[in-house]
Amino acid sequence: MTVIQQVSVDRMKIIMFLPLLLLVCSFSADETETAGQQPCPQDIHAVLRELTASLAVQNERITVLQRENQELEAKLESQKTEMNQLKQLSEEQAGKLKTELQNQRTEANQMKQQQHVTQVAFSASLLEQGYGDTGPFNGRTTLIFKHVVTNIGNAYNPYTGIFTAPVRGAYHFDWKVLGRDSTHTGAYLFRNEEKIFFAYETQSTGWPSASNGASVLLEVGDQVSVRLWAGSRIYDNTEHHTTFSGHLIFTM
């Protein structure tokens, strides 16, 4: 039980006791008159004054305690609000810290990926094993260089014969083709569907061969391939005569 509740109980006891006291005093007065004695109004008034003073004190105590209780409740509410603000601030700071850590991880991964991307080089020959001719075909045909010697960065696909630029930059490519028992042999270097350079050789007998090289600017996703000239036939064996190579010179 709180102090305010206790004071209220005391006050109620006094209020409840007052009518009873008045009744007793009235009864006593009647008996006194009956007995031929005069009542003592001064005693009744003294009791009433004491009760009234006690009630006033109790009322004052209740008022003070109520004010103190209101101040305490206001203080607790203020502390609760402050705690909520601190909690919210802590959550915001934690969110900002989490976001900053994620950004740092993303940046580190991008730097790591960029470091790997800047290391791009490949070299491959036409046949994986054995020997034989490729062509002739009616149209330009993409050559698939299956025997991969180097493929740093995995930008060259040995199943399609296509090199895909992983980063914007300047690249250099070399290609060579060897013919057999043919008067001519040749192959183009293509960037996407754009013909860049042509390597071509013709001779009446023997083994005609042709080679060329080019440095080109590639955007991310650009594709580079070597395509056999229509009607041309090329040859390769375990000596790897027909080749395709390329590497990144620098990023841009």
Rank of each mutant, 00 (worst) to 15 (best):
residue 49 R to S: 15
residue 126 L to P: 12
residue 46 A to D: 08
residue 123 S to G: 15
residue 42 Q to C: 06
residue 182 S to P: 00
residue 95 G to Y: 02
residue 129 Q to V: 15
residue 65 L to F: 11
residue 87 K to T: 14
residue 216 V to N: 08
residue 14 I to E: 10
residue 19 P to N: 08
residue 101 L to I: 15
residue 52 T to W: 09
residue 226 V to C: 11
residue 243 T to G: 02
residue 92 E to F: 07
residue 140 R to Q: 12
residue 144 I to Y: 04
residue 155 A to M: 05
residue 63 T to V: 14
residue 131 Y to G: 15
residue 78 S to E: 11
residue 26 S to E: 03
residue 161 G to K: 04
residue 16 M to V: 14
residue 112 K to L: 06
residue 8 S to V: 10
residue 26 S to D: 05
residue 193 E to R: 03
residue 163 F to N: 02
residue 147 H to N: 12
residue 8 S to M: 15
residue 88 Q to H: 06
residue 250 F to Q: 06
residue 5 Q to V: 15
residue 36 G to Y: 13
residue 89 L to W: 00
residue 109 N to G: 02
residue 235 Y to T: 04
residue 22 L to T: 05
residue 197 F to Y: 13
residue 51 L to W: 01
residue 228 L to G: 03
residue 20 L to W: 05
residue 11 R to D: 10
residue 231 G to D: 09
residue 189 L to H: 03
residue 2 T to C: 15
residue 116 H to T: 14
residue 118 T to C: 04
residue 220 V to A: 08
residue 234 I to C: 13
residue 62 I to N: 08
residue 116 H to A: 10
residue 248 L to P: 08
residue 145 F to Q: 10
residue 107 E to K: 05
residue 192 N to V: 13
residue 194 E to L: 07
residue 5 Q to E: 14
residue 3 V to N: 07
residue 47 V to D: 05
residue 70 Q to R: 06
residue 185 T to M: 10
residue 57 V to A: 13
residue 158 P to S: 09
residue 138 N to Q: 14
residue 241 H to S: 02
residue 203 Q to E: 11
residue 151 N to I: 08
residue 135 G to F: 10
residue 224 V to G: 03
residue 5 Q to S: 13
residue 151 N to E: 07
residue 29 A to H: 05
residue 228 L to E: 07
residue 32 T to P: 00
residue 53 A to T: 15
residue 5 Q to N: 12
residue 232 S to C: 15
residue 27 F to S: 00
residue 213 G to M: 08
residue 75 K to E: 05
residue 184 H to W: 08
residue 35 A to T: 15
residue 175 W to T: 05
residue 83 M to H: 09
residue 9 V to Y: 08
residue 47 V to T: 13
residue 211 S to E: 12
residue 202 T to D: 10
residue 159 Y to N: 13
residue 235 Y to K: 03
residue 6 Q to L: 03
residue 125 S to M: 04
residue 212 N to P: 14
residue 167 V to Q: 01
residue 37 Q to D: 10
residue 99 T to Q: 07
residue 45 H to S: 08
residue 111 M to V: 14
residue 12 M to V: 07
residue 106 T to H: 01
residue 112 K to H: 02
residue 25 C to G: 11
residue 116 H to F: 01
residue 139 G to F: 13
residue 131 Y to D: 13
residue 27 F to H: 00
residue 103 N to S: 12
residue 113 Q to S: 11
residue 218 L to M: 11
residue 216 V to G: 07
residue 233 R to D: 10
residue 79 Q to I: 13
residue 120 V to D: 08
